[in-house]
Simulated assay, not measured.
Amino acid sequence: MKKSILSLVLVLMLFSCKSTTNTNGKKVLYEVLLQQNDGGGNINFYEILTESKEIKMLQNDKKLKGKISTDDLQQSNFVILNMGQKPTGGYAITVESVTETDKNIVIKVKEINPDSGAMLTQSITYPYTVVKINSKKPITVQ
């Protein structure tokens, strides 16, 4: 049981640190600011924050302190990905890809379910992820 819990923690840490790389001097298109297996909403939904007053609410979150600058209020949008209530641990929600077109930003979301037969925490969880999009273009989530 300790091995599976340790494996789950390692996987979540890997996903929580994922962001695109900046290899050609261009601005990074997106960053995963926070990925947690608990603390999200009760239902599955994606929320796009574009207004300064909405983004300021994120700045006040203890887990996001120091990750959102004043410039981000004018230059970035944010997306909250909620997976909803899950019966056990082992679930996660993350970004599969982010693509910029001439007109918008397209985010492909990946929901991760635990392997069948895996040893899991037996408590209800609420997985969620907060993503910073370094653009003010309209966002579509798939």
Rank of each mutant, 00 (worst) to 15 (best):
M1S: 15
K2R: 13
K2N: 11
K3R: 14
K3L: 05
K3A: 12
I5Q: 10
I5W: 07
L8G: 12
V9S: 03
V9T: 09
V9D: 08
V11H: 10
L12R: 14
L12F: 09
L14C: 11
L14S: 14
F15K: 06
S16W: 08
S16Q: 09
K18W: 13
K18Y: 13
T21C: 04
T21E: 14
T21S: 11
N22R: 14
N24C: 10
N24H: 15
G25S: 15
K26M: 14
K27E: 14
V28P: 15
Y30E: 07
L33W: 02
L33I: 07
L34Y: 04
L34S: 01
Q35A: 11
Q35N: 08
Q36C: 07
Q36T: 04
Q36W: 02
Q36A: 15
N37P: 03
N37G: 11
G39L: 04
G40S: 03
G41A: 13
N42K: 11
N42A: 09
I43C: 05
F45S: 06
E47A: 01
E47M: 00
I48F: 04
L49G: 02
E51K: 15
S52A: 11
K53S: 12
E54Y: 03
E54P: 08
E54G: 11
I55H: 04
M57H: 10
M57W: 02
M57K: 12
L58D: 01
Q59A: 04
Q59E: 12
D61G: 00
K62E: 12
K63A: 12
K63Q: 12
I68M: 01
I68D: 07
S69I: 05
L73K: 09
Q74G: 09
Q75Y: 11
S76N: 12
N77I: 04
F78G: 00
F78N: 03
V79K: 08
V79G: 00
I80C: 01
L81H: 01
L81Y: 00
M83Y: 08
G84R: 00
Q85T: 13
K86Y: 00
K86V: 00
K86T: 04
K86H: 01
K86I: 08
G89D: 06
G90W: 02
Y91P: 14
I93N: 04
I93Y: 08
T94A: 09
V95N: 02
E96H: 13
S97E: 06
V98N: 09
T99V: 15
T101F: 05
K103L: 12
N104L: 14
N104P: 09
N104S: 15
V106P: 02
K108Y: 04
K108S: 07
K108Q: 10
E111T: 12
P114A: 06
P114C: 11
P114E: 07
D115Q: 10
D115P: 06
G117W: 06
G117V: 05
A118G: 05
M119Q: 11
M119I: 13
M119N: 13
M119V: 09
M119D: 12
S123Y: 13
S123P: 05
T125H: 04
V130I: 13
V131N: 01
V131P: 00
K132C: 01
K132T: 04
I133R: 02
S135I: 07
K137N: 10
I139F: 01
I139A: 02
T140F: 14
V141P: 03
Q142K: 13
